[in-house]
């Protein structure tokens, strides 16, 4: 059995130390070692975006990052998007617009949309669609997702 290694990181704003096998991905470590099940595995090879997290503020597929790589870095997952018990505006608008059906892709979409709005608070519809092209949703046809993100952006303006 593989030896475990200790990783020190900042996870959703909290300093955290955890043990993992060097071959475990960040997604596996989040889900299996840290109990953060909000990041989902839809494909395991970076094509669906359901596992997306922010690594030092940059959007990444956590299934393509090895867990030990986050040593000394900062990770924000879906569990860290709502603050002080208040839903993030994206979470609120996803609910109001019925932007989710089965909901499995939703954490990834919300994390990705946050990364977009952090970088570009006033995106066009095309900007949103281009940015979210790395996240697959099979239920909604994206219409209500794009509207929710544009609605949040409109309120930012």
């Amino acid at each position: 059995m593989a030896n475990k290694t200790a990783v020190e990181t900042t996870l959703n704003g909290e300093e955290t130390t955890f043990l993992c096998e060097p071959r475990q991905t960040l997604l596996e470590a989040l889900r299996d070692e840290l109990g953060l099940i909000g990041s989902k595995e839809g494909c395991g090879n970076g094509n669906c975006g359901a596992c997306n997290v922010l690594l030092d503020g940059v959007l990444v597929n956590s299934c393509l990052v090895l867990a030990p790589e986050i040593e000394g870095r900062s990770v924000v997952t879906i569990e860290g998007i709502a603050e002080d018990g208040e839903l993030h505006p994206l979470q609120q608008k996803f609910l109001e617009h019925a932007s989710l059906q089965c909901g499995i892709c939703t954490p990834g979409f919300i994390v990705s949309s946050k990364a977009l709005l952090d970088e570009n608070p006033n995106p066009t519809e095309h900007d949103v669609r281009l940015w979210l092209a790395g996240n697959l949703c099979r239920c909604t046809g994206y219409d209500k997702i794009v509207r929710a993100v544009l609605d949040v952006a409109q309120n930012n303006a």
């Binding site: 889900r31 990041s39 989902k40 839903l87 979470q91 939703t106």
Partner: peptide, 21 residues
């Protein structure tokens, strides 16, 4: 009407438990 679904908050915060969870 268009109310928010009962399971919505769990699904936008990552708390909803799917089979792999």
């Amino acid at each position: 009407t268009r109310p928010v679904r009962p399971d919505g908050v769990d699904k936008v915060t990552g708390r909803a438990v799917y089979a792999a969870d």
